[in-house]
């Protein structure tokens, strides 16, 4: 464990708390002028469920197990809130990204490019590929509405920072322990790349007090 990875994981936690806070605060997932994509949240729940199949079989540390449990539980809770509690405020007409294609693509790629052709490894690889593109429905929704509530942009910023710090962590681990993981690196680079446009607008507008609006 290094500092980059620790802060990255903490930013991931922060992003989830921001999301829960937003949902509780507005008592809806719709909010005033920005929305949370149910598809993105459902994809994240799928990511955690397929990645941590070793939860009971492989104990690494209390930290590792606690985080895994938290990510699975919180993602399922968010999906539950959106599907049942705040269903009326969730507008599927804006959540139009074709998620089935990225699920299919990630599954196909996981069957072809993996470290070992076992059920657990293919599921793990699938979760890595799926996480890389899981934010797309949310970003797509943002593009469609053209603007976002500040709290939604903070959520995306925390998520993007978490991914960015993982990139730094891999460079650090490569030099200090000769750690190599091509599948995670390439998927992670793609995932972080998706946040570039968002980061640009976040830094140039939101941090200067302006509203998040697409040009």
């Amino acid at each position: 464990m290094n500092l980059f990875r620790l802060v990255a994981d903490l930013m991931h936690l922060v992003s989830i708390f921001i999301l829960l806070l937003k949902m509780q605060k507005t008592r809806s997932v719709a909010g005033r002028c920005s929305r949370i994509s149910f598809k993105t949240q459902a994809l994240y729940a799928t990511v955690f469920l397929t990645r941590y199949t070793d939860l009971f079989a492989n104990f690494q540390s209390l930290y590792n197990t606690t985080m895994k449990v938290f990510f699975i539980a919180s993602s399922l809770y968010i999906v539950f809130l959106m599907k049942f509690k705040f269903k009326a405020t969730n507008d599927p007409r804006l959540d139009t990204f074709k998620a089935q294609y990225v699920v299919g693509g990630a599954a196909a790629l996981a069957l072809i490019v993996n470290y070992a052709f076992t059920v657990q490894e293919v599921l793990w690889t699938f979760s890595i590929y799926l996480e890389a593109v899981a934010i797309l429905p949310q970003l797509f929704m943002l593009t469609k509405t053209g603007e976002a509530e500040v709290i939604t942009t903070h959520y995306l910023f925390a998520l993007g920072t978490y991914r960015g710090l993982y990139l730094v962590n891999w460079i650090y681990r490569y030099w200090t322990e000769y750690y190599v993981d091509w599948i995670v690196w390439i998927a992670g680079a793609v995932q972080t790349g998706l946040y570039c446009d968002f980061f640009y607008i976040y830094f140039t507008k939101v941090l200067k007090g302006a509203k998040f609006e697409l040009p």
Binding site: D9, Q60, N64, Q120, E121, V184
Partner: peptide
Amino acid sequence: VAEDIEHDEL
């Protein structure tokens, strides 16, 4: 070998 693969990151 599959048993050697350990994913220590989250």
